[in-house]
Simulated assay, not measured.
Amino acid sequence: MRIHFYKYQGTGNDFIMIDDRERTFHATQEEIERLCHRRFGIGADGLILLRQEPDYDFRMVYYNADGREGSMCGNGGRCTVRFANDLGLFEDTTTFIAVDGPHKATATPTIISLKMCNVSGVDRREDYHFMNTGSPHYVTYVDNVDETDVVGIGRAIRYGDEYGPKGGTNVNFVEVLNENHLKVRTYERGVEDETYSCGTGVTACALSAHVQHGWEGPVTIETLGGTLQVTYNQTAADQYNDIYLVGPAVRVFEGTIDI
């Protein structure tokens, strides 16, 4: 099967994008994993299919780099919005559906603003917070995130006794730079490595900072791949809606590949 693909990135979180409105893409888990492999394939943190969906502009179907269909990916969502905009599916605003439900988004030439799912409940532990922002996220604070063993500690938590039996979790390490300003590094399950950025992860970190420090949005988050902002509205204790993930999403290149 010959596939025409596009490559997009959002703050360094990169994705293979496929226009699958005709439902012609059929690949096994192993084939998707190989496409995402950085030595033997195209190379990406995940693969995303854009499909037609009644009553929406499109459907986003996301696969992790391990070839398994994943939970919501925030930066992947922003890249899919940019892809749909490039395909001419909408002009300025869009509504689409993903694995965690409907999403709204707006696009300018440089910025994608994506409405995330509502968050209900933050598990407050002594050393960390845990919540689901479309994907499960563990958030812990460190003094110097640049010197943190993100992969070693992240993998131990992801596969540990607490979260391993539940399918694992993403793990975020947060350094407070200033008021409403964070630096974040993330270990992502499914990629099983540190990524340059994680959209649902920085969303969790912004809400955690509200719990920890009482900050109101917007919160600016520095990642290895660039800068994102998160805005939100608290409706009750640990209840949040109108959550927006804001930042760039860029088309890198396109090509064809045989699988």
Rank of each mutant, 00 (worst) to 15 (best):
M1I: 10
I3E: 03
Q9V: 00
G10H: 03
T11S: 15
G12Q: 11
D14G: 07
D14E: 10
R21H: 09
E22Y: 13
E22L: 14
R23L: 04
R23V: 02
F25Q: 01
T28W: 04
E30Q: 06
E33Y: 00
H37I: 00
H37V: 00
F40N: 15
F40C: 13
G41E: 01
D45G: 10
L50E: 05
R51N: 09
F58E: 02
R59D: 11
M60D: 01
Y63K: 12
D66P: 06
G67R: 03
R68Y: 05
C73D: 12
C73G: 07
N75Q: 06
R78E: 03
C79P: 11
T80M: 13
V81L: 03
R82C: 11
G88C: 12
D92R: 09
D92E: 15
I97N: 05
G101C: 11
I111E: 10
I112A: 11
L114G: 12
L114K: 00
C117L: 08
G121S: 08
H129A: 08
N132K: 05
T133V: 03
T133M: 05
P136E: 01
H137A: 10
V139P: 07
Y141G: 01
N144P: 07
V145H: 03
T148I: 03
T148F: 12
T148A: 10
V150H: 04
V151S: 07
I153S: 08
I157S: 05
R158C: 14
R158I: 09
G160W: 13
Y163P: 00
K166I: 11
T169W: 00
N172K: 10
E179F: 01
V184C: 13
Y187C: 06
V191R: 02
E192M: 07
S197G: 06
S197V: 03
S197R: 02
S197H: 05
C198K: 04
G199E: 06
V202M: 12
T203K: 13
A204W: 07
C205I: 04
H213Y: 15
G217W: 00
V219P: 00
I221G: 01
I221R: 01
T223M: 08
T223S: 04
G225V: 03
G225Y: 14
G226R: 03
L228N: 11
T231I: 11
Y232N: 12
Y232C: 02
Y232E: 07
N233Y: 00
Q234A: 14
T235E: 13
Q239E: 13
D242Y: 03
G255V: 04
G255P: 05
D258H: 10
